[in-house]
Design a protein around this nucleic acid. Structure first.
Length: 477
RNA sequence: CGGGGCGUAGCGCAGUUUGGUAGCGCACUUGCUUUGGGAGCAAGGGGCCGCAAGUUCAAAUCUUGUCGCCCCGACCA
């Protein structure tokens, strides 16, 4: 009877169908609702709260590194988008166009921003005149639109929320430093707060951002062995500056072009959190970004004193800075346990008459196990337990990452290794070898040239020619 | 954009083959009893069957079109 009931709300197990599991979790944890337009979803309060927490962390780190927030227009005139050739070639196939104002056709159509490089460049051309105006370290929080063909909540939408940093510098060196600095900031957000270990590196020529001289990435490993490109930073050199006429006068009174960067992370990273930490009971959230870090479940709450004590405990935790919720609804305790597991709340406190009498409560971390702790000093115990959950999640994910990296020396070994996860090989640098691998494996692409270039051989795993570069490969979302 | 699956109550589905008063479980409302892993009984409320056109005395059911969702490929954060 109870089993039958459970079937109604059941989540498809990960090893049965990982994609179905993902969709189940997204729906049942009440993260998104579909709208009537393909690729456009409603971010429900719980998902938006997660995003706000990620935003809060990122925004603080951006400001600590000297960046300021701005807001650019939603629409880009076609002529402005056209100014940088590689850039427009990369984005033109997936932009949405506005062609009418009211019922009047526009003389020039306007694209809904797929990214805002062109707008920032136009603005920078206006406001940068002297070396004293540099650097410009701007960031924008917004949504962008890209007309994707296949869509999935968080992982690929036609509209998604993100932040895009755009900076302008006096020298190439300074801009290159910025590109790497922000990659480190991203890696820190992922590892320290999202509990997602990363592999940092540089994209190959074929995987670069449209218009960039160099693209850097941090790659995360999901539980099913696929990679998620979670964020990228780009070095533009002075290419955009030349296309848009962004010049300044240096100290020697010489007219020079600026050097630029851009970098972004999006709500896609929430999909990464789901697929990194989730389990067959639902979502599992790292405490650092969980909207509710601890939920207090009163047991036999109609009995005198129980609710009062539960509220008191919740208040103590709130006072101590824990994001806590007391669920005093009249659902059964078992129902509440399952509900908050589904929603990935990192820590559950059970408090019933027996506990109150003994001056204790039960702590049940989402990562497993249960322990009884005294109510005296509960705030410290809860904080310690949250730290443990955060660390356990990171360690598990790091273990998964390590287990899923194989070194390969031949195409056959690569094909086998990519079924499991990342494959690390030597690479000759030829784009043809990238194409060969993609064809042979049906979709494997290069992930990055890792910063750690310790050789694992001396010939290219694809063509057998002498090779000096270490390269990661893998299937990706 | 190719191949496959699917749109019926908030969610999950049956009913479509063979046209004839729209159903089930969960959720929801009210009341009582319950509460340490998705509680029980009773009485209720809720649907232009995705949308549009057609065939018919009659369409959830047949025809055509269209929109959307999911999965697998190709393309992309």
């Amino acid at each position: 009877m109870a089993g039958e009931k459970k079937l109604v709300e059941q989540i498809t197990p990960r090893d049965v169908d990982f994609a179905a599991w993902y969709t189940d979790v997204v729906k049942k944890a009440e993260l998104v609702d579909y709208s009537s337009m393909k690729g456009f979803v409603v971010l429900r309060p719980y998902a938006y709260a997660i995003w706000e927490n990620i935003q809060g962390i990122a925004d603080r780190l951006f400001k600590e590194t000297g960046h300021e927030n701005v807001y650019m227009p939603l629409l880009i005139p076609e002529s402005l988008l056209q100014k940088e050739k590689d850039h427009v070639k990369g984005f033109a196939p997936e932009v949405a166009w506005v062609t009418h104002g009211g019922s009047e056709p526009l003389t020039e159509r306007l694209c809904v921003r797929p990214t805002s490089e062109t707008l920032f460049c136009e603005h920078y051309a206006h406001i940068i005149n002297s070396w004293r105006d540099l650097p410009k370290l701007y960031n924008q929080w917004c949504s962008v639109v890209r007309w994707e063909k296949t869509t999935r909540p968080f992982l690929r939408g036609r509209e998604f929320l993100w932040q895009e940093g755009h900076t302008a510098h006096a020298t190439a060196e300074e801009a290159q430093e910025e590109t790497l600095r922000m990659l480190d900031v991203y890696a820190r957000i992922a590892e320290e707060f999202l509990a997602m270990p990363v592999i940092k590196g540089r994209k190959t020529e074929s995987e670069k951002f449209a218009g960039a001289l160099a693209t850097y990435t941090f790659e995360c490993m999901m539980q099913d062995g696929k990679a998620l490109q979670s964020g990228t930073t780009h070095y533009f050199g002075d290419g955009f500056a030349k296309a848009f006429g962004i010049t300044y006068t240096d100290k020697e009174n010489t007219l020079r072009h600026v050097f630029q960067t851009s970098w972004g992370i999006s709500t896609r990273i929430i999909g990464g959190v789901i697929m990194t930490h989730g389990d067959d009971s639902g979502l599992v959230l790292p405490p650092a970004i969980a909207p509710v870090q601890a939920v207090v479940i009163p047991v036999a709450q109609h009995k005198p004193g129980v609710l009062e004590k539960a509220a008191e405990v919740a208040d103590v935790l709130k006072e101590a800075g824990v994001r806590v919720r007391l669920d005093s609804s009249d659902q059964s305790p078992g129902w509440k346990y399952a509900e908050y597991e589904m929603k990935g709340v990192p820590l559950r406190l059970e408090l019933g008459p027996r506990d109150i009498e003994a001056g204790q409560c039960v702590l049940a971390p989402r990562t497993g196990g249960k322990e009884t702790v005294p109510l005296e000093g509960i705030a410290a115990a809860v904080k310690a337990a949250l730290d443990t959950v955060q660390k356990t999640l990171y360690d598990r994910a790091a273990q998964n990452l390590q287990n899923r990296i194989t070194v390969a020396h031949t195409l056959e070994e690569m094909a086998a290794g990519t079924k499991k996860g990342f494959v690390k090989t030597m690479w000759c640098g030829a784009e043809e070898c990238e194409d060969t691998v993609r064809e042979v494996t049906g979709g494997v692409k290069t992930r990055c040239l890792p910063f750690d270039q310790t050789p694992v051989g001396d010939v290219c795993a694809v063509c057998g020619k002498p090779a000096g570069k270490v390269l990661y490969w893998g299937y990706q979302y």
